[in-house]
Computed example of a mutant assay.
Amino acid sequence: MNTATTPYPIGTPGTAWNEAELAQWSRQQLVRRSYADDVLTVIEQLAERFDRLEYGRLDVDPARYPLQALRSRNWDDAQPIMLVTGGVHGYETSGVLGALRFLDDAAEAYADQVNLLVAPCVSPWGYERIQRWNHAAVDPNRSFRASSPAQEAAALWALVQPLRSRVVMHIDLHETTDTDETEFRPALAARDGKPFEPGEIPDGFYLVDDTERPQPDFHNAVIRAVSTVTHIAEADAQGEIIGSPVVAPGVIRYPLGELHLCAGMTDAPYRTTTEVYPDSPRTDAENCIAAQVAAVTAAIDFALEHSPG
C-alpha cells in the first residue's frame, strides 16, 4: 500500500499519467477473488425467485464479466420502481453482498408492492481486484452519463434510462475504507498529476444526500434504521465528513447529477448513497452487510409510505 509520505510508484509527481502509465497500473492489478463464485453463483440461485437480466459484458473479458441484474418476477407497471445498486466501486464489498443479501432475505416482503431492480455488482473487474477503478483507471462513479467513459456505467445507464422517470427510490451501496486514504486517493492524485492532500476516514455509517434535491426526512429515516444495526459516523473537528458539511447526524450532500454519480442517474425523488466503514474496530464484515440491508429496507419503506398512490 502507498502512504501519504511516499510518492505513488507509478508516474512522475506533478505530471498526469500517459497511456503507458495507465497500462502499467492496469497490469499491476491482480485477481484476488472470484466474481463467478461470489456473485454469479448467488445470482443463479436467486434467479429461481427473480428474473435475471444480462445487460452487457465487459469488453476486457466478455466471458468472465457478464453484467447481470435481478428484477421482480411479477413486474407490474402500476407499481413504483425501487432501484438498488452495489459494487459500482468493486472494492466496496458490503455493497455487493448487501444487495444480494437484501434479495435473499428481505425482498419477498415487497413482492406485491413494488417493482425491484437490483444490480448487485456493477464493476466486476474491480470486484475481483478489490479496486475502485475499472481496468482503464476510470472511476465508474463519476461516469453515469451519456457517452460514458466507463463501460460499466454506460451499460447500467442504458438499462435504467428507459425507466428513469418511473424510479421512485434509488439507493447505491458503498463503503469508505482505510485504503481510500492509503491507496486510492494517492493513486487519483498521481493519475491526475496533482498533489496528494491527506484526509480523515470517518468511523461509521453515513449517507450522501443530493445537494440539488435534498430529502432530509428520507435520510433521517434511513439513519434511524441503520443506527439499530451499526454506529453512525460523527462529524470531524471541522463539522464535516470527508470534507463535506454534516447537515444532520450521519448525512452529507453532494450534487449527485452534476458529478455523474450512480445515485443521480434517475429522476427518483428519493435517492442516496450509503457508506459503511468495514475497518472500524466497532464492526465486522457481517455487521456491514446487515447495515446495508437495513438501509435498503428503510429506504423502500419510506418511499412507499410517502409516494402518491
Score class of each variant (00 low, 15 high):
Val84Gln: 00
His174Cys: 05
Leu100Ser: 05
Glu212Val: 07
Ile10Cys: 02
Ser94Cys: 12
Glu44Lys: 14
Asp51Glu: 11
Ala155Trp: 00
Gly257Tyr: 04
Asp37Lys: 12
Ile43Arg: 06
Gln29Ala: 07
Val208Met: 04
Gly11Tyr: 06
Pro186Ile: 00
Arg213Lys: 07
Gln24Tyr: 07
Asp217Lys: 12
Glu44Thr: 15
Thr283His: 07
Trp133Phe: 15
Ser147Asp: 15
Ala153Ile: 01
Ala295Thr: 03
Ile289Met: 05
Pro62Thr: 10
Cys121Val: 06
Ile130Gln: 13
Arg213Pro: 01
Phe102Val: 06
Ile252Glu: 01
Leu117Trp: 07
Ala99His: 01
Thr283Glu: 09
Arg282Ala: 14
Tyr206Gln: 00
Lys194Ala: 12
Cys262Trp: 08
Pro202Gly: 00
Leu116Glu: 02
Leu46Val: 15
Asp180Asn: 15
Ala136Asn: 13
Asp37Phe: 08
Glu183Ile: 11
Gly257Trp: 03
Thr12Ile: 03
Ala69Tyr: 03
Ile252His: 01
Ala294Leu: 10
Pro66Thr: 05
Val96Tyr: 05
Leu83Asp: 00
His260Ile: 05
Val31Asn: 08
Ala20Phe: 08
Phe184Val: 07
Thr272Gly: 04
Ala47Tyr: 05
Val160Thr: 03
Gln79Trp: 14
Asp180Phe: 14
Asp279Thr: 12
Ile242Glu: 14
Tyr110Ala: 05
Ala290Ile: 04
Thr274Asn: 05
Ala153Leu: 05
Ile289Arg: 10
Leu256Lys: 01
Ala299Lys: 01
Gln238Asp: 14
Val247Arg: 00
Val84Phe: 01
Glu234Asn: 06
Ala36Gly: 10
Ile201Ala: 04
Pro120Met: 06
Asp236Phe: 06
Val39Asp: 03
Ala298Thr: 02
Asp178Trp: 10
Ile171Glu: 01
Gly250Gln: 00
Ser148Lys: 07
Leu67Asp: 00
Glu175Ala: 07
Thr41Glu: 15
Ala36Trp: 10
Arg132His: 13
Met265Arg: 14
Met265Thr: 02
Glu305Trp: 11
Gln28Phe: 07
Glu275Arg: 08
Tyr65Ile: 09
Leu46Gln: 15
Tyr110Asp: 09
Ile241Glu: 01
Gly199His: 02
Leu70Lys: 12
Cys262Phe: 07
Val208Gly: 04
Leu97Arg: 12
Pro124Glu: 03
Glu181Arg: 14
Leu40Pro: 01
Pro120Glu: 04
